[in-house]
């Protein structure tokens, strides 16, 4: 009923990997002085032309950067926050000239949309949601899903950004347990997946708001984060990371895992473990999955990248200038990897 069969791909030795597989394209230094917390990429219309821009977040400021012909990055806009610090950027696919951010201390207390006035002259911010927010994700078709909890119930809300700046709201049927992460299901339009605090995976119908199924995926790993889900041949494939995974197992250190679930029967089986190469220590701190590639910042301060189809780690990026990596994101606008350090250095690979 739970994860039983897990294949291990051949784990290459550490020596065969190097960051040479990654090509450094440019570097961006944010001199804001406060701790750098996140990075993302967004389409933004500047002087009538839609351009891929980089968004950086420090504790109390979010900035939009445009790439100049000289290869240098120019800061175009900055949004400032006086009271509550920024926790993460929430990219919304299919949206131009808008970026969402989650603010809070340990937990998310606010979600705000950051935009500019129609003439592009000044920065604006709109408060979208407040409360004890546990999970938030930008979805395709200009939507944003979030879950918040009061003492007695949970609300799962989908907001759609209409052209012209207005928002429409819809509620999904909440599960009894707190939702920790969301993921869209590629290959099944209108299916949304969530992981819960009780190690269950839930599926909604985004169109009707129905809660379709709750599936237990086993107790081997607690607090799994779902990074990607896709439906193929009647099965649901889910890529999870495990913040609580043991640092050393005989097979190496597992960082990501691919599991297959039959949504009809709620039975699941482990398909693949994505481990660190021999000789590498560390476990998952934070990471991102796009298409067939997974990237993770490890407790060792190194970034590791896996090809999910090959099944093994294909590149290791050690700390640069004696600074550990603190976050990593795949660009949503092109094929770049954005790697960040706490002091505000962003490296584009």
């Amino acid at each position: 009923h739970s994860i039983e069969q897990t294949e291990l791909a051949d784990v290459p030795a550490c020596d065969s990997l190097n960051p040479g597989n990654l090509q450094l394209v440019s570097k961006l230094k944010n001199h804001s002085g406060s701790c750098s917390v996140d990075v993302s990429a967004v389409w933004w219309e500047i002087a009538g032309v839609k351009e891929p821009c980089i968004v950086t977040a420090c504790e109390y400021a979010v900035s939009l950067w445009k790439l100049l012909d000289t290869g240098q990055w120019e800061k175009r806009y900055s949004w400032h926050f006086a009271e509550v610090p920024v926790l993460q950027i929430v990219p919304v696919p299919d949206v131009c000239n808008l970026v969402c951010v989650a603010l809070g201390n340990l937990e998310i207390r606010e979600i705000r949309a950051l935009l500019c006035s129609s003439d592009g002259g000044c920065e604006k911010q709109v408060l979208l949601r407040t409360g004890n927010i546990h999970a938030v994700l930008g979805l395709t078709q200009r939507r944003l899903v979030s879950s918040s909890r009061t003492l007695c119930d949970q609300q799962v809300e989908v907001m759609t950004f209409a052209e012209g700046g207005s928002e429409e709201k819809q509620f999904l049927m909440p599960p009894e347990e707190t939702v920790l992460t969301f993921a869209e299901v590629q290959g099944t339009q209108e299916a949304l997946l969530g992981t819960t605090i009780m190690n269950n995976i839930v599926i909604w119908n985004l169109k009707t708001g129905q809660l379709l199924k709750k599936m237990h995926i086993g107790d081997s790993y607690q607090a799994s984060v779902c990074h990607k889900a896709y439906s193929e041949m009647g099965l649901l494939f889910v890529v999870l990371s495990h913040p609580c995974a043991k640092e050393k197992e005989p097979s190496g250190s597992p960082v990501f895992q691919l599991i297959a679930i039959n949504p009809k029967t709620a039975l699941s089986v482990g398909v693949m473990l994505y481990c660190l190469p021999q000789g590498q220590a560390g476990r998952f701190l934070e990471g991102d999955v796009k298409d067939n590639f997974a990237a993770a910042v490890l407790t060792s301060g190194t970034i590791a990248i896996w090809d999910l189809l090959l099944g093994h780690c294909t590149a290791l990026l050690p700390p640069i200038s004696d600074q550990n990596w603190s976050f990593v994101k795949w660009s949503g606008t092109d094929s770049h990897l954005l790697a960040g350090q706490k002091d505000g250095n962003i490296f584009v690979y």
Binding site: N205, L211, L212, G234, N262
Partner: peptide
């Protein structure tokens, strides 16, 4: 993974679950 581990599979699982779940 073999089909036996996961029970009977349906390509149309999303539509079937949507028709079975409470509105």
């Amino acid at each position: 993974c073999s089909q036996a581990d996961l029970g009977p599979i349906s390509i149309n699982w999303f539509e079937e679950l949507s028709s079975e779940a409470p509105p």
